Amino acid sequence: MREFRKMAVILAALALLPGARLPRTGPVPQAKPEAATEAPAVPQPEKKPEEEQVPKPQPAPAQNPETPPAASEVPTPQPKPSEIPAAPAVEKFGPPSPAPEDLTPKPPAEQTLEEQHLTIEPESDADHAECTTELQSLGVVFRETPRIDDNNGCGIDKPIIVSQALPGIALKPEATLRCPTALALARWMKGSVIPAASVALPESGDITTINQASAYICRLRNGADTGKISEHARGNAIDIASFSFKKGEDVAVRSRRDDSTLTGAFQRTVSAAGCLYFTTVLDPESDAAHETHFHLDVIKRKGDFRYCH
């Protein structure tokens, strides 16, 4: 028995020696248990250096809604524009700059005479000569005077000073006008006023004087501070306050709408007839600004439009 064991040990040692061969009849090695078939490894794309260096974003840790945020996480409230204090004003020398609304042009009705930047209208030499020739033929007493320029558009290019509207009919005080205004006055007196007076007031005799309240004067309409320039400021207008007669009393221009006398009829007649000679006629029935006189002017309008009230 011991010999058999020795023999087995010798054979085992021989089997471990290099180049040793096992006997053909030796024990057959058993196969290992079948392992799961492994899929072939798929080659992975090589990562770029940039991608390897960029850290992936980490999900924010869940916060307890009841846990207040840290002081550094609380947003700082921003003030509203209206709550931002204005910068201290820098002291400047000289007049203050105008406010934006002051730079907006005013409408003509709100402009002063200086703001309108008007100019004097030139007159044709030929037209002026023709007009003065006709005045002379009617017997108007006048004299020429140098050009008037009172700035801001006030003035007359070729003014005349009228002392008698017609022969024997004085204009008091004498009036500085443009020739077309004096010519319209003479025609009105000759064609309408004198005939109406001879019919309505024959006992008063002839008209001796026209008492005027205003001729040339530099101002706006109705003497206002703002608005359109008056035709008086251009020599185009004259205001008649009353008529003096050789025998009777003066006939003052006043409201006579309900005056049923011949004097009332005379005033209403000459007021209506004025629109045949002047382009504007305003009488005491027009407004409060004309309750004591006739306003007569020769302003030119489109289509020869006339305003008579």
Rank of each mutant, 00 (worst) to 15 (best):
G227P: 01
A8E: 10
A39C: 03
L296G: 05
L220S: 03
I160W: 08
N236S: 12
G274H: 02
T132A: 07
P18L: 07
T280C: 06
A165Q: 01
P68R: 10
P98I: 06
E3D: 13
Q136M: 09
V42K: 11
L201I: 11
A288H: 15
D157E: 13
L201M: 11
Q63P: 01
R143W: 14
Q58C: 08
P33G: 05
M1H: 15
I161A: 12
K172W: 02
S198L: 13
F294H: 04
K48Q: 07
P57M: 06
C154G: 15
L14R: 12
E123R: 14
H232I: 09
D304I: 03
D225M: 09
P100N: 04
E3W: 12
I148R: 06
L282Y: 02
N211V: 14
P107W: 07
E38W: 10
T112C: 04
P122T: 09
L22R: 14
L138N: 00
P167H: 05
P95M: 04
E50Y: 09
L171K: 02
I120R: 02
M189K: 00
E52Y: 04
A200W: 04
C218S: 07
Y277A: 05
E50G: 08
P284V: 02
T226F: 01
A109T: 13
A237W: 03
P81Y: 13
Q78F: 13
P69L: 06
I217H: 07
S137H: 05
E52V: 10
S163G: 10
R147Y: 14
K300F: 05
S255W: 10
S244G: 10
A13F: 11
K47W: 09
H232M: 12
V251T: 01
S192D: 14
S286Y: 15
Q111G: 08
T209P: 00
A31V: 09
